[in-house]
């Protein structure tokens, strides 16, 4: 293998490990450590999905920064969401839910400037977020995620997360958790 290809394989492994560790932080409710993985200017966006004709892809998703979405926010609001859970009286997450993030189909889409010296990586994956709470309440949320990771002071940080949930009418009563 050429050096470049080896670098790419190693990078992919590094990114996968980063994403799995991040999922662990969420599933173990280590929210402050999770917040620390977000770049200060992070964007977190989850559009709504519409039923459209095959050639009308543009209208399938609500637009970031223009339309109403399920989520369209930055680190400040995400931090507030974490703080709300931590109040201990956010009844929608109290008692706390049992959540597992399953990630698969991880692919590096773009690496800049190079796999050997990566500064920004865009990575796509599938997610399955399983939530079970109280006694039998259960949600399965499946979709695609596209993350832009940035290397800041030698650490990977999440600069942008686009979450495409494969649902039209949301089948969960609320979205009190992170993707």
């Amino acid at each position: 293998m050429t050096d470049d290809r080896i670098a790419r394989v190693l990078l992919k492994q590094e990114i996968e490990e980063f994403l799995y560790r991040e999922a662990d932080l969420l599933d173990e409710r280590r929210y402050d450590e999770w917040l620390a993985l977000l770049a200060e200017d992070a964007r977190y966006w989850m559009p709504m999905r519409r039923n459209v004709k095959v050639d009308d892809r543009e209208r399938e998703f609500t637009r970031e920064g223009r339309d109403i979405s399920w989520f369209d926010e930055g680190k400040e609001t995400l931090t507030r969401r974490v703080r709300q859970i931590q109040t201990g009286i956010h009844w929608a997450e109290e008692p706390v839910s049992r959540i597992s993030h399953l990630l698969s189909n991880i692919q590096l889409l773009e690496v800049n400037p190079s796999p050997a010296e990566p500064a920004e990586v865009s990575v796509r994956c599938r997610f399955l977020v399983y939530r079970n709470r109280v006694e039998t309440e259960t949600d399965f949320l499946v979709g695609k995620r596209e993350d832009l990771l940035r290397r800041i002071d030698g650490h990977w940080r999440i600069a942008r997360r686009k979450i495409l949930l494969d649902q039209n009418v949301l089948l969960s009563k609320n979205l009190t958790f992170f993707f």
Partner: peptide
């Protein structure tokens, strides 16, 4: 605003 939230 464009985008109607619908949920169960």
């Amino acid at each position: 605003l464009c985008g109607i939230q619908k949920w169960r």
